[in-house]
């Protein structure tokens, strides 16, 4: 991999690492925002055959610009097929047609469980209301495996979730098996600081790679539980020039189009 001499940001590194995690995947059920950006970068770089599936019912969408919403016209116009929402969830997701589910979240715990529902604020203040579940609970359950992309902070990586919206490894070893969940659960959590993977025994998220220039101490400070670090800690390859150029062109096109439509 030829490393770029161009400067890049932590956010760009996160997106590049997320896109790389889709190498070899055939079908990806994509959440909007960071997952969609990464999945489209993967399609435009190393995985041109990647089938993107959005919960609006667009199968095989090939957007030339990033969608703002899960149902932008660009997704419908470039899709192989458009199906109804009951069909996308029943036949295509529950039916086992999605190799990878790609999710974001407001909170993640050490077992990769996700909260997108509400956050307790304490001090007698009402809970902070988040948008809610959307497609995530069933994506987390049924996709062949799940990738999670979030920015790393101790407000996101918390000791205890305020609410479990979508389940990862629950309370640890054996949890998914007891529930009869068919998918493998979260196999990677990719952040702007590094990459976490579940420990094969305990299922607890463990730091397996840091991005270039990031120290383990910095990741630990940004994690709300005592973070375990893999003995073979790796350093992520920096973004290549091709990855950076492709991503920046995609974002420039996106900005231009969304501005032009006003």
């Amino acid at each position: 991999m030829s490393t770029s001499t161009i400067d890049w940001t932590a956010d760009e590194m996160m997106t590049v690492a997320s896109a790389r995690a889709l190498a070899g995947a055939r079908t990806c059920f994509v959440g909007i925002g960071l997952p969609s950006r990464a999945a489209n970068l993967a399609r435009l770089t190393d995985n041109p055959g990647l089938v993107l599936i959005y919960e609006s019912g667009t199968l095989g969408a090939k957007p030339s610009v990033l969608p703002l919403s899960i149902g932008d016209g660009e997704l419908a116009d470039t899709a192989d097929s458009i199906v109804s929402v009951p069909e996308i969830f029943n036949y295509w997701l529950q039916g086992g047609r999605c190799d990878v589910g790609f999710l974001g979240a407001a909170q993640v715990d050490r077992f990769g469980n996700l909260n997108t529902t509400s956050i307790a604020r304490g001090d007698g203040r009402p809970d902070l209301r988040l948008p809610g579940a959307g497609g995530a609970p069933e994506i987390a359950a049924h996709a062949g495996k799940v990738l999670i992309v979030v920015r790393h902070s101790d407000r996101v990586f918390v000791e205890k979730l305020s609410f479990i919206t979508s389940v990862g490894f629950g309370t640890g070893t054996g949890f998914r098996e007891r529930l009869g969940l068919r998918g493998a659960g979260p196999t990677q959590v990719i952040t702007d600081l590094g990459i976490l993977e579940p420990d094969p025994e305990s299922r607890e998220l463990t730091l397996v790679a840091v991005h270039p220039g990031v120290t383990v101490d910095r990741v630990r400070e940004a994690t709300g539980w005592p973070l375990k670090v893999d003995g073979d800690l790796a350093t992520t390859d920096a973004p290549t020039e091709r990855e950076l150029t492709t991503m920046r062109e995609l974002q420039a096109r996106t900005k231009e189009v969304h501005r032009a439509r006003t």
Binding site: V85, F89, Q94, A133, G135, P137, E138, T165, V167, R182
Partner: peptide, 28 residues
């Protein structure tokens, strides 16, 4: 969840009292 809501409408359109799905496992 979306899957749950979609299936609730499917049951309504089908004049069934409920719909069945694999869903909500482990969710609060």
């Amino acid at each position: 969840s979306h899957a749950g809501m979609a299936n609730r409408y499917v049951a309504g359109a089908s004049h069934l009292p409920f719909a069945v799905l694999r869903g909500y496992e482990g969710s609060g």
